[in-house]
């Protein structure tokens, strides 16, 4: 393995940070290169990224109750 390429283990250790774009540019690139050449790691990455996106999407479906909207409207009207 060339020193500028990650092994599966090295890429896996960085997967969460990679999904969140929290790696350095060089590390981000190395993980990306690994994912281009390793179907198993790429599948894991796609799964994790999809899961996080879906969790966010589900949480965003919760609506403020009418009682809260009324309370906020009253506060703003009283200012």
């Amino acid at each position: 393995m060339a020193p500028d390429r990650y092994t599966c283990e090295e890429a896996f250790r960085r997967l969460d940070d990679y999904v969140d774009r929290e790696l350095s540019a060089a590390e981000q690139q190395r993980v990306a290169v690994h994912l281009e050449t390793c179907a198993m790691c790429a599948e894991e990455y796609v799964f994790e990224a999809s899961l996080l996106r879906m969790v966010r999407e589900r949480l965003a479906r919760i609506a403020a109750p009418a009682s809260l909207r009324a309370r906020v409207a009253a506060l703003l009207a009283d200012r």
Binding site: L59, A60, I62, A63, A64, P65, L68, R69, V72, L75
Partner: peptide, 24 residues
């Protein structure tokens, strides 16, 4: 942003009444 603010407050407080108070 009120729906998202309530969602955030609800997850932080884990209680509907507390979440409303927090947003207020």
């Amino acid at each position: 942003v009120l729906d998202a603010a309530y969602g955030l407050a609800l997850r932080l407080t884990r209680d509907r009444a507390d979440a409303e108070d927090l947003v207020q």
